[in-house]
Design a binder for these strands. Structure first.
Lengths: 65, 65
DNA sequence: CTCATGTGACAAGGGTGCTTGACATCCCGG
DNA sequence: CCGGGATGTCAAGCACCCTTGTCACATGAG
């Protein structure tokens, strides 16, 4: 699962910590999502989509499957 | 997170076990999603959307947040 | 009745998502 | 030089996702 979180965050001039605050998660969680350590839960994916005003499909892309 | 999995599955006349096979998960996982025991991971949500030919947003609905 | 199918639920275990706390590096401002 | 914001990463801990295996119950076919 690739994602566009870093690009979308930087477009809005937010730090990882600031985005975490907006989403209600820690800065380490934002960093982990951006660096591909793991995928977000479905509720967090919805929170990201709502925050950026996009669909989940516009933010996340299945690598293969 | 409410979801439309049961309705979509029954429209296609599939058992929980058969849907599980299609998605690559166990029948207990399908049952747990339908009965609201927990939300799927993001990859499984994508698998469901792809299988049903819908977007994640059409299958899952945030209760509130 | 007997058997298969479909569903609901539980337990234990492994892997993942998310937390706080900490340490290191880099870059920029003073 | 020194301090602070921003990022990357690790460790420990808790909760959740998903597994296999199991038990129970309902229904319909033979």
């Amino acid at each position: 699962m690739r994602n566009e979180i870093r690009r979308l965050r930087e477009e809005r001039n937010l730090s990882q910590a600031a985005l975490g605050t907006e989403l209600g998660v820690s800065r380490q969680t934002v960093n982990s999502l951006e660096t591909g350590r793991y995928d977000p839960s479905l509720p967090l994916a919805f929170a990201l989509a709502r925050f950026f005003g996009l669909t989940i499909e516009e933010i996340f892309h299945a690598d293969d499957a």
